[in-house]
Amino acid sequence: MPSMFPSPASGGDDLNRRRLGPSADENIIPTALRVVFWMLFVTAAFMIFTGMVMYTAGYTGPDDVDQAFKDTVVNNQKFIGGINAFAGIVIAALTSQLPRGGKTPRRVLLAILLLVVLVDLLSFATQAGGFALALIAVVVALEALILFRPSINSHIERNHMARVMNPDK
């Protein structure tokens, strides 16, 4: 019977100490990790596609402007497109390491995600890119939030401690 003041020797029916749900099994990947895994892969593919389109699009604005302005716009588009394509490739590579766990890939992934949010929102705000950049920034910010859910944190911590305690595996 659970008491108002639980002790370390409380019975097995204490609701505060019972492990519930699929996170109780240490071999199961949390559902949140599966969701963010596939979201990151789809977003990375969309970022690569968007980056390549921006890199190869050229100038698409009005023709009655100065050539120097056209060159500046094209250079900005190539820069933003290159960053998005490269970040998409890095995100896909780091995402593949998430189910096995490890703190460092997740931290690097967070840094890349924050860079993408910053660059894409600034590009959208200055009209150097289209609506796709704002969409990418919002989805990437959502993925960064999901990536640090408590179930994922405990999964990563378990995997990290298993590597620290058994370095030969």
Rank of each mutant, 00 (worst) to 15 (best):
L122C: 05
D64A: 14
P30Q: 12
A87P: 04
Q67N: 15
S23G: 04
P22D: 08
A92F: 10
D66E: 14
L98T: 03
G102Q: 08
Q67H: 08
F69T: 15
A93N: 11
I136V: 11
P105Q: 05
A68P: 03
V73K: 09
A68E: 14
T126M: 05
V74Y: 07
T50D: 12
L113F: 01
A9R: 10
A137S: 09
L109R: 03
G88S: 10
F69L: 12
G51L: 05
V42P: 03
W38K: 04
G129H: 10
G81S: 06
L109M: 11
N76K: 09
Q77D: 11
L113Y: 02
F49W: 09
V116W: 00
I112L: 06
T60V: 14
G11Q: 01
V36D: 03
R19Q: 08
R100N: 08
I89A: 13
T60F: 11
A93V: 13
N75R: 10
D25T: 07
L110K: 04
D25W: 14
D14M: 00
F37K: 07
A137C: 06
R107M: 15
G130P: 06
F41K: 06
D120L: 00
N76A: 13
Q127W: 07
V65T: 13
L20T: 11
R106L: 06
L33V: 12
L114I: 05
L109V: 02
R19K: 02
F46T: 15
V90N: 07
S23I: 01
M52P: 02
I80D: 08
T72L: 05
Q127N: 08
I136T: 14
R106V: 09
N75M: 10
I29R: 09
R100G: 12
T31V: 14
M54F: 10
R17K: 08
G61K: 07
Q127L: 13
T72H: 12
I28S: 08
S7A: 07
